[in-house]
Design a protein around this nucleic acid. Structure first.
Lengths: 323, 323
DNA sequence: GTATGAGTTTCGCATTGCGAAATTCTCGTA
DNA sequence: TACGAGAATTTCGCAATGCGAAACTCATAC
């Protein structure tokens, strides 16, 4: 397996791994059979959680009416009644509520009711990490179920990466500590390297300038040039590996970018124990499955953004690769 | 006043208008002092309307929580509590409701709650006519209050224009009939001409192809070429005038495009009686005020789309002008 | 293992939201 | 102008729905 010089370095000292040394379930894994867990749990999945309350009917109705307004654009009470079968006084009450809080106006100059700019506040947070997680989650969970190693997703946040999603909650081969809310370093982490390798040149220059400004002279043009060589290699390979000196040294991380139309949205990683995966199996067991998951994720994102949907399987990454 | 050949033609037969022939208030105008009117009224303004019901508190709370989720992206119950001061069981109840209807998911892999793609349905209708009306309304109402003539706004809808906003409800100089829901012809109406003159070349070609296909041979390349000459003149002048043979002949209409970054969003018009405005006063009393309103509207739209806001007054239209 | 805090559940209560019926407004037509 | 039909809005009696303090349970940190 050809991983490049940096990648070879990551595996220094670990040549083989005996079959009986493979990690089985650990302390954390012992709780992975819980039927459900809470939103703040580091083990298990919230998927099977039962609701504490029945849905509030008035809320559902108001949101349904708001959806109709968005679909039909300019509506009369009669239009909404025809679309929803809700009683007209109920419709007027909900409209009065939406009007009171600024989401809708009643305007005879357009002949009915229409939404206002305020509805932007009801969706503006979706673009970004929420969208990336939504697109990535099923494939990440599948990947962890398949390869057993945890998958993480992080986004650029100022001068570091913010890890905002981590399937370690369901991975049998994981330490109890979480990666969630970690802020891996842009230069040394796999996430940071993947991000910087694939973002635009101007953005990369700006990031280098920020790193240089914050380094008190310890990061100069020589180290930047070296790092650029490393990033070029990352682009050539299509993935990044964590700097080998990073603690804990028993682990390493492979990262790839999630892109849409040439823009890096996030970095996605698989973390694993160096001793658990033979060096000649990393491509097959880690990198290739991760690459396939990234392709699926990018396809779904393109579809959701109506960038020309193709089938979920088999789509090609939009990231610039030096091939 | 230089209005061009087509514009001169619109005024054929009407040279002057005696001061005492100016229309005063008419039947419709007699009701314009109503304190408020309903959403389906063709006279008056809904602005002063009193709500029929107090706002529904649970709806307001759910929407407030949804706004926080969009602002903070990934939230815990504690985050929402800190931002809203709502009791935590209330927050959980609202979240359960939003989860039940698919707008939000609880996910321990990201450490809290996040919005889903479904929130797009709560805003998707804003982009388009709702946004244009919202930006245009105050300036259109001001314009009608200043010049007394009704302002209309229409958008392309298949093979015609759909008039979707009309200040005739408050204009003292207007016939009882409304323009709302009218579908002016693309070739003969001022709105249609303004739209076609300023839309992109590909779109215009497609529109011509559609017109030709629907004309049973009566609209051929010769008439298209003639119309293109007229449209070039419209672009040169910055406004379009209704074809003079259009009924009722006592009226005419001046239209301009509302554009954003070179795209025509809508057409906006002032309609007036030919006999009421001297030909040498049309520029001053109609065209120039309308142009100023359009500039303001486009500035507001650019600001709301964060396309580089400048002050509301004095912004330059983004429309391509042959100058 | 313990303490603290976060998230979730319970249950008595009353207010808030509901909608059938009535009223009023608006438009279209003669 | 008058009338009829339909659209939009208002009224008001009622009970179910939503509320939240208190309690409970889970999860993390040390």
């Amino acid at each position: 397996m050809e991983l490049g010089a940096a990648a070879d370095e990551a595996f220094a000292g670990e040549d083989t791994f005996a079959e009986d040394d493979r990690p089985s379930t650990w302390k954390a894994g012992a709780r992975s059979q819980a039927t459900h867990c809470r939103a703040n749990s580091r083990r298990g999945m919230t998927d099977a959680i039962r609701p504490s309350y029945p849905p509030v009917e008035s809320v559902r109705r108001a949101l349904e009416i708001l959806r109709i307004l968005n679909r039909l654009r300019i509506c009369t009470v009669g239009d909404i009644h025809a679309a929803t079968r809700l009683p007209k006084p109920t419709i007027v009450r909900m409209l009065d509520t939406l009007i009171a809080d600024g989401y809708v106006v009643r305007d005879n100059m357009c002949g009915g009711y229409r939404v206002t700019h305020r509805v932007e506040e009801l969706h503006a947070g979706y673009k970004g990490i929420a969208e990336v997680i939504e697109a990535s989650r099923p494939f990440s969970v599948d990947l962890t179920n398949a390869i057993k190693w945890p998958v993480g997703i992080g986004t650029l946040d100022g001068d570091a990466i913010a890890v905002q999603f981590w399937t370690g909650t369901i991975s049998p081969w994981v330490h109890a500590n979480t990666l969630l809310h970690n802020r891996p370093n842009l230069l040394t982490s796999a996430m940071g390297r993947a991000y910087m390798a694939f973002c635009g040149e101007e953005e990369r220059a700006a990031l280098f300038a920020m790193i240089r400004a914050g380094s008190n002279g310890s990061f100069g043009s020589e180290r930047e040039a070296q790092h650029n060589v490393l990033l070029a290699s990352v682009r050539k390979q299509g993935f990044a590996i964590r700097a080998p000196q990073t603690e804990p040294r028993r682990n390493t991380t492979v990262a790839m970018p999630i892109c849409h139309k040439g823009t890096v949205l996030a970095s996605i990683t698989v973390s694993f124990f160096i001793s658990a995966v033979p060096r000649n199996k990393v491509e097959e067991q880690i990198i290739e499955p991760l690459r396939q998951a990234v392709n699926k994720i990018e396809t779904v994102i393109a579809f959701m953004r109506r960038g020309g949907a193709s089938e979920v399987d088999g789509a090609v990454s939009d990231c610039p690769l030096d091939v």
